[in-house]
Design a protein around this nucleic acid. Sequence first.
DNA 1: TCAAAAGTGTTGAGGTTACACCCATGC
DNA 2: GCATGGGTGTAACCTCAACACTTTTGA
Lengths: 248, 248
Amino acid sequence: MSLLDTKNLMQGISLDCVIFGFHNNDLRVLLLELKNIKLCALPGGFIANDEDVDLAASRVLQNRTGMTDIFLQQFYLFGKVSRNVPGHADRLVREKLIGKDLYSFFNRRYVTIGYYALVEYTKVNPLPDEISVKCDWYNINDLPGLILDHREIILQAHETLKSHLNFKPIGIKLLPAKFTLRDIQSLYETILSKKLDRRNFRRKILGFNILNALQERRTGLAQRPAQLYKFNLSQYNRALHEGLNQGW
Amino acid sequence: MSLLDTKNLMQGISLDCVIFGFHNNDLRVLLLELKNIKLCALPGGFIANDEDVDLAASRVLQNRTGMTDIFLQQFYLFGKVSRNVPGHADRLVREKLIGKDLYSFFNRRYVTIGYYALVEYTKVNPLPDEISVKCDWYNINDLPGLILDHREIILQAHETLKSHLNFKPIGIKLLPAKFTLRDIQSLYETILSKKLDRRNFRRKILGFNILNALQERRTGLAQRPAQLYKFNLSQYNRALHEGLNQGW
DNA sequence: TCAAAAGTGTTGAGGTTACACCCATGC
DNA sequence: GCATGGGTGTAACCTCAACACTTTTGA
């Protein structure tokens, strides 16, 4: 637990990252399987006194995925008193997840800042932290038991992601560099948990002007080869900034 | 400063409320004019250890406006280190805004949770708190000097409010009980800082089905009397919950 | 030649934009 | 009667949903 020099950390505030990946048409989240406890937890951490909160989130993310330059966004502060379970810190000490010296740091009321991140599944090499035995992906529709209110945090992150689909381009961090329209449609369908009309989807997504067709096709399948695309980075960023559907 | 029993407060976390009101076609925010310092500040406060964060925000709001049942929404956690100005706590003590006993509570790094609220201007009786001489409304386009990053917080609240206009019904807390379509259009125009076509606006807002026409008109003006409306509470709440423009 | 998915186009409904005209009132 | 803003209608346009057919490949 050398990383936890608690004197330099803000007290009573934590952050938790809901890290989304996309693989085999599954929307997955990266979770830690805790030592000695049959429960999972979101990758999270604390904020150093001299550290921007966004930077702390980015550090946590980097430690668990090995990746930098990740789409990362604060989405909610969970501030209910009831999210703190009496005896939680005791349990952490009893199960030897943390040392007794950290008991007083953990045994207090916490609010936590929820971040969600979008990462390219294949590029991630999940790394467990000091209090977990495994770091792995779980299907969002088949989540394991989770500590505290982490399940609620994940569900709320998912809702936020869904609503962001309407205003922001999404996918540059969730898809490989080259992809077909079917790939990106599957991503949207997975996030939204519903089927979209293939022809209308193509028209709409191409209309956003954030894709560039490549001089390449995906061959090897017993079907007509599909056009490959990549994101147009500058257009994508412009769309991120300006939004896609302005009302009023 | 009897209210600040700092032992019971979370440390390093504050909250600030951007309270919007609408009057004379102005979008205004409620600000405190600080004692001895020629700067204003957002109404804000701290969170008791046994208090939900939302409840703390609601308490602050009630103390400044005398109102309960206010639309109040968390919109961002401001977590940059740079928002803490060195010497700020010293200044508060020097200018006698706080006692020396509170110095150590204030002299630390803070993150603050931004809330925005919508209130009916005429119903508010602004009350200064212990560290201010006045609590008053300021036009959002003509803000006075503000401490710390409070100006940025206000601007971001305004951006959030603008974007919420596209998905959520707004107005029930900003307008009097009876209002004309012109009134609500002015509200929208003011929030968005742009003119809307009167005829199209009427069609659109009526199409939301959140208004009920009254058997009353606004008379006394040298023009055709305008139909008065009130919000249909149940429809309004349904729209709040379901959103107005669902994409995808 | 067959299965499978890619690629393309059209039509109708509904919503949005940009307009012009008449109406009711106080002065 | 006249200035002022309220109330209504409509045509052009755009977007979106629903849908059918042809194309290209590997097996």
